[in-house]
Design a protein around this nucleic acid. Structure first.
Lengths: 343, 343
DNA sequence: CTGAAAGCGCTTACAG
DNA sequence: CTGAAAGCGCTTACAG
């Protein structure tokens, strides 16, 4: 089963040179190499079908050229999209990516951080849960290259790539108001664990209501864990004054709402207006098509990689960590139009 | 920026023992270790905040405990689901996973295979394109642990985890027939590159038609690349006798069909019956909800890992490679019911 | 019960 | 232009 690999020594012997010279060749330092030597090595590598061992290289170089990515919840399509961008960008820069899914579970997350560090990843990009502040603090304090995405960890001086969540909610609400919906409710997953985007989206809801001189009704704010969110939605529509429109915090909360709506024969648009954050492929084919506040997922992933790679560049003095906010954009479709009404 | 790591030597010095003894401790070989020694080492590790370096360990052990996963197209939700299962299962067995997306591009795929091998992954799980037969052949012939998922590479004696594609199509067609649809067309992505499941699905279509004594109309078989599939769909409905129902090969072809249907005001169910392969979250909330032939994605991912790990077990003589076929199941919803007609 | 030594497969000053 | 030597951080027979 075990295949004896051919090593650099085999190549050296075969080409009748030293290991050093082969190594020079492998690292493309041809400057002082005779044409003939180069060809001999080239041939030896070919004949022996030699494949360099990167583990050995990594050990010597103290760099593995791999980045660990830990995502809180890979089922969330925003995450998949950003990860896709991260992997692409990293790959372009000759880095490998190890993707881990923490399932919103701090224990799993901790475990992943530790095994990634043991594997000597050169840096970490993480969508953090809020359960490992101390661990992250230690990493950040010791200057280990790390950048956060989507969420940040409170009180840590580290880079983070975030959506402008307040703006996102404002856009959603403004669109709804323009289209004649006034009593607007917001749906997010639970904010008990203080996950930043959810908190910001709820705050954004409140500030938007204030800005548009509308009352803030606590009963219109439903932040619940996914399995019990539908109950919350039901409560909303049992209210004396049920909402005329819904802002859904992401694609997962949207699914719950859509299920509720179809079970209760609520017509999207005419019965309830709807805008959701996060663009997913099925928005377009839903009937009616769903108006969406999209995050620039590709740019966000790219930025995260860029920030991380900058840290490897010694010439770049760390000029203090920052939170980078990205602008959402609205994709107007039909879910926030009352029957017949056109803007 | 670089943090000097504490190494096993530091721990040894601090605990006043040799590196060997620390290593014994790390590998939990306590048999011959004095209680007191153990405690001293434990403390030293704690004090120095020592983290073992897995790269060094891997080099010595010639095993990295990591598996490379190469997926042909990560945008395909079947792949995401299987990968999720693979990662979970691997993680339970203390293996790391490196996921790479080949984008259905043999060149990218080749590149990934090479870098994964250079990184000394212990094995490979791959959803192969059909462009690297020779490379895969070399790997399989040299006994490198590899298992294929979803597709296999022709003429290679290797394990593969596959859907019973013929059965899947038969189930779809039988369901459609039972519900009163007779003229049935099938949609898949292009079969020019001979990607196995597509080919099998088209074959399955033909064998099903034969089995049910229906004519096989070539014009009802549309196998096109995604960007031009919609044109193929249009052709279908311009036929003298347009199909009464559609079997969609996967979630991506489904999207194209759904877009076409909504643009042309085709009512799913009453105007055209529809069954698709691959269960995705939005099937349920689509209007009408979509009847689906589901693949047992979790079991398939789990099986792939199991087959791979078996190869590491020397006691298991390789009893010849096999193709493992998994049974699809049907999730009946409303997209294959004519208005008013109930089964 | 514990330590000295060799070695995994590379890279990199340094010498010549 | 090329080679000998040391070393990256571990593990594992082997000796005592």
């Amino acid at each position: 089963m075990t295949i004896e690999k051919t090593t650099i020594s085999d190549v050296a012997k075969y080409a009748k040179v030293s290991k050093s010279t082969v190594s020079q060749f492998l690292n493309e330092r041809y400057e002082y190499m005779r044409e003939e030597t180069r060809e001999r090595i080239e041939q030896a590598i070919e004949e022996l079908n030699y494949q360099p061992n990167n583990v050995a290289r990594s050990l010597k170089l103290k760099s593995t050229a791999t980045i660990g990515v830990i995502v809180a919840n890979i089922l969330h399509s925003f995450s998949t999209q950003v990860i896709r961008a991260i992997e692409d960008t990293l790959n372009e820069n000759d880095f490998s990516t190890i993707i881990c899914n923490a399932d919103d579970n701090p224990k799993k997350e901790k475990n992943y951080i530790e095994t990634l560090l043991a594997r000597q990843v050169d840096g970490l990009i993480v969508f953090p849960t809020s359960g490992n502040r101390e661990l992250y603090k230690r990493l950040v304090d010791s200057n280990f290259p790390i950048v956060f995405v989507d969420r940040y960890v409170n009180g840590l001086n580290s880079d983070a790539v975030m959506l402008d969540n307040e703006k996102a909610i404002h856009m959603a609400i403004e669109h709804l108001l323009t289209n004649g919906y006034e009593d607007i409710a917001v749906l997010t997953t639970s904010i008990d664990t203080a996950v930043v985007p959810r908190v910001e989206r709820v705050q954004g809801y409140k500030s938007a209501m204030k800005r548009f001189d509308l009352p803030i009704r606590e009963a219109y704010i439903k932040s619940r864990d996914l399995p019990v969110l539908k109950k919350g939605i039901a409560e909303l529509f049992k209210l004396e004054k049920p909402p005329q429109a819904i802002v859904s915090g992401n694609d997962l909360t949207l699914m719950e709402f859509l299920k509720y709506a179809s079970e209760h024969d609520l017509k999207i648009g005419s019965d309830v207006g709807l805008v959701t954050i996060d663009e997913v492929n099925f928005m377009e084919i839903h009937n009616p098509p769903i108006t969406t506040i999209a995050q620039p997922t590709f740019e966000m992933g790219e930025k995260a990689v860029e920030l991380l790679l900058d840290k490897f560049d010694d010439s770049n003095q760390s000029e203090g960590a920052q939170i980078y906010r990205f602008d959402p954009s609205i994709i107007v479709r039909k879910s926030a139009e009352k029957a017949g009404v056109r803007i």
